[in-house]
């Protein structure tokens, strides 16, 4: 089970609202490579994962992704304080505002709501760990794209932290891949699926 800790994993303190940037960064909450999908992916995959090392990695990274949802949500929250209707119309945030006001809702930058189609739990150790490594790289690219578009140091700082976590998680899932392969037949990693075959 889980218990909530009343603190962020990394501090967020944004002084200047920027609804256009909020709409882009929201994609890392509910978009195709966002933190909601990441948490759901790892916390779903761990049940049938046969190796304790990889169960630990999936559990602990999945839990950290929940903390990243909170950081992304905090960034969006602070970027959308005290906005006039004129600022909302001019920024392009109007299409979000009309449906959600300034509430936090998991959605991609394009406006597509969060979908479980953004992740897999395939029930195959090798397939899932490669999906996880790819997911970390996709999220890293998205954070790189956000950094290309952001100019406020208060926004850039926590985004750089989140970007670095994607790189670290990629490395740790690499450890998981090694554990999985060490447990399989080195002449044919695909000979059987350790999550299903006896």
């Amino acid at each position: 089970m889980w218990e909530y800790e009343k603190k962020l994993q990394y501090p967020v303190n944004i002084k200047r609202p920027n609804p256009a940037m909020a709409k882009l960064i929201m994609t890392q909450y509910g978009g195709p490579d966002g933190e909601a999908g990441a948490a759901m992916r790892y916390l779903s995959q761990r049940y049938t994962m046969p190796y304790k090392e990889v169960i630990g990695i999936l559990t602990d990274i999945g839990t950290e992704e929940l903390a990243h949802q909170e950081i992304v949500s905090t960034i969006v929250y602070q970027l959308t304080r005290n906005l006039s209707p004129e600022e909302i119309m001019a920024s392009g945030f109007d299409t979000y505002f009309v449906d959600h006001t300034v509430g936090i809702y998991p959605v991609a930058a394009s406006g597509v709501p969060f979908s479980a189609c953004a992740f897999q739990s395939k029930g195959d150790a090798i397939t899932d760990i490669f999906e996880d490594m790819a997911a970390e790289q996709k999220a890293r690219t998205t954070y790189d794209n956000i950094l290309r578009l952001a100019d406020d140091p208060d926004v850039i700082d926590p985004i750089r932290f989140l970007r670095q976590r994607e790189v670290t998680h990629f490395q740790r899932f690499g450890d998981g891949l090694r554990v999985i392969q060490d447990n399989l037949n080195s002449r044919n990693f695909y000979g059987y699926n350790p999550e299903y075959d006896p």
Binding site: M1, R46, Y47, K52, E53, I55, G56, T59
Partner: peptide, 9 residues
């Protein structure tokens, strides 16, 4: 020992 079996499920 954190990763030791059994996990809760």
């Amino acid at each position: 020992t954190w990763i030791d079996f059994p996990w809760p499920w």
